[in-house]
Amino acid sequence: MRIALIAALALLYPVAWVAPLLRAGLLPLFGLSEISVLSGLAALWDTDRALAILVALLAIAAPYLKLIGLLRDAIRPLGRASHTALVILGRLAMADVFLVAVYVAVAKGVGVGRVETAWGLYLFSFCVLASLALGHWRPER
């Protein structure tokens, strides 16, 4: 069952990366632009490559590396140190969800534009939290 859940997350993460996390616009009269993890990375790449690389590591590399580690652990148990590394990878992936929440709070507080959360934020958050839960779930061996 654990392997099936890991496989489901491996399929859901790419959907979460292209799904709209936010809808943002400058004025309420104009339409809102949808922002996904990948479109946000593309925009960051044009303005701040170091931040784009950091976000790519937190939002894409860390979660997938953790899934690979969880799959390896499900097939053949890892040692304590390797399992601790997987937990840390999960926490790094959660940092990305936290950053999006901070951006939404700041944008709403400034009051210049309009920001709405979209379904992709919930999907991405679910994937990260499910991955965290799977990291802590180690059946008795």
Rank of each mutant, 00 (worst) to 15 (best):
Y122S: 09
D46N: 13
V112P: 00
L70H: 04
I6C: 02
L92G: 07
R76H: 03
S33H: 13
G40S: 10
L99M: 10
P28T: 08
D73E: 13
G90H: 05
V15G: 10
R76P: 02
A85H: 14
L121S: 10
L54C: 00
A4V: 09
V55C: 08
L41H: 02
G79M: 06
V55F: 10
V112I: 13
F98L: 08
V115K: 12
L121M: 12
W119P: 00
L121K: 03
R141L: 14
P63W: 03
V15H: 12
A101G: 11
L70I: 09
V112H: 07
P20T: 05
L27N: 15
L38Q: 01
E140Y: 11
W17K: 01
L27T: 15
A93G: 02
P63M: 03
A130W: 06
S82Y: 11
A50N: 14
D73H: 08
W45T: 12
I3Q: 11
A118W: 08
S36K: 01
F124D: 10
A62V: 02
Y64Q: 11
L65V: 05
R49T: 09
A107H: 12
V115C: 14
I75G: 01
A133H: 01
L38T: 03
Y122M: 06
G25S: 07
L54T: 06
R49F: 11
G31C: 06
V128M: 05
L41P: 01
L132W: 05
S131N: 01
R138A: 08
R72W: 04
V37I: 12
S36G: 05
L9C: 03
D96F: 13
L22C: 00
L78R: 04
M94Y: 04
A101H: 12
L78A: 07
G109I: 11
L44F: 04
